[in-house]
Design a protein around this nucleic acid. Sequence first.
DNA 1: TAGTGGTCTAGACCACCAT
DNA 2: TGGTGGTCTAGACCACTAT
Lengths: 261, 261
Amino acid sequence: MREVATNADKEHASRTIERDLRRQVESGALAVGEKLPSERALAEQYGVARNTAREAIRLLAEQGLVTIRHGSGVTVRGKPRLMRFGAERYARTLRQETWLSPFRAEVGRQGREPRVDCTSITRIAPPADIAERLLIDPETETVVRRENWYYADDEPMQVGVTYSPWSIVEGTPVADSAKMGKGSLYARFEERGHAITTIREEVTARMPTPDEAKGLRIPDAVPVLEVTHTGIDQDGMPFEVTIFTMRADYNALDYRMPVED
Amino acid sequence: MREVATNADKEHASRTIERDLRRQVESGALAVGEKLPSERALAEQYGVARNTAREAIRLLAEQGLVTIRHGSGVTVRGKPRLMRFGAERYARTLRQETWLSPFRAEVGRQGREPRVDCTSITRIAPPADIAERLLIDPETETVVRRENWYYADDEPMQVGVTYSPWSIVEGTPVADSAKMGKGSLYARFEERGHAITTIREEVTARMPTPDEAKGLRIPDAVPVLEVTHTGIDQDGMPFEVTIFTMRADYNALDYRMPVED
DNA sequence: TAGTGGTCTAGACCACCAT
DNA sequence: TGGTGGTCTAGACCACTAT
């Protein structure tokens, strides 16, 4: 009857399997955490080669619907709990406590155990983009680089890399101690005459590098949010830049700001 | 000599090919826009099956390094130009002009031609998350939904879906006209007694849905930024919510705000 | 050790693109 | 039309996980 054989007639076997599985997930027939049939079982069930069943599962993983674990199977991925971070992170009322409070508070609110590790403190020549934001000369000035890792229940959530001019942090715990003491980072800056008054946050997103995916244990199909935060003092001078890299499925940003004329 | 055979000895062939190609891209031996050898050529060159060469290319595409075009080959992907958007989008000085100015200005700055299409205006019951942000009862109140598509040189950049209570926009061009007139959207709201004074922006990122990938022509390995924007008036009342979805490789957000105590 | 996913082979045919 | 990527087969062996 048909003059032209259309693609609608012959759907690819891998797409058929993908669609069937997706429907089972969406209908709840396959609950979150439940195991999908093995590649070999699917291949036999649909009468296809194992690679074809495998392709169907790869497509689902690419869309973030399932988690593949080598040696133990494929399970339905659940929607994660979201942590929200806004500008109140830097408010003076929180500055009295540890500067990590917003993270700890948010994690604690979810009944999980927060942890922050300072993994390295080094003195280096500033990368060009950092020097630009700190308004310093990368040829003549150096910065201190602090790397912090943020965990919830030992699951890595974020990495924060802070850069600050050596001329500002020299002799303070910022420059050489993993422990910041009471009042923490922004209190130390304030003691040196830099009270955080304005923040600038530049936000973008991308897929994680292979190293980030490994370090943050990021599953397939999950991008990272990259936030470049600049702390600016009462005189309009930037005194620290922190680049946060965080799993986009676990984190969201929530800003509230006045509209200027 | 070795007691235990380690994996270091036998790297997977697909990873070897992937690494070789990546190095050629990073060193510039394969320039942006240049074609990679075909799958068949790589297979012969490395003495492997075509599927193995294919897997290497799939890995590169997954990381966003190359673009695959069915029937015409695989080319090195270039880094795109970034557009930056901040809160000045809503400033009164811009409100005198069209509300699309920041987009048009940013695109124009890059020597490209901006275009905005309003593709649909409907009156609906508000989705739960929208009703929540507008502080309205989803059972009894309705909203107007406006969908806008933003282009640069006919390339789709963003989608913005605006929701506003019917009680506010009834009888205005917001409710039934693709053309907004002079001063545009926020001027219309101001005429109805709602001057935009505060904005709230909630930001997250995710991989695009298949529909979004098609509509926004998003290549593999590129996530989307999702910005939920709420406009709040002089009395602290929210009067519109817009959900922007944008390619993360083309767009960045740039916020500057005071730190409150 | 049994069962799972990870990689690979050596073919085959189809769909798309440029010439 | 020739060359490209897209899908598929029917096997094989390796690496990982759980028991």
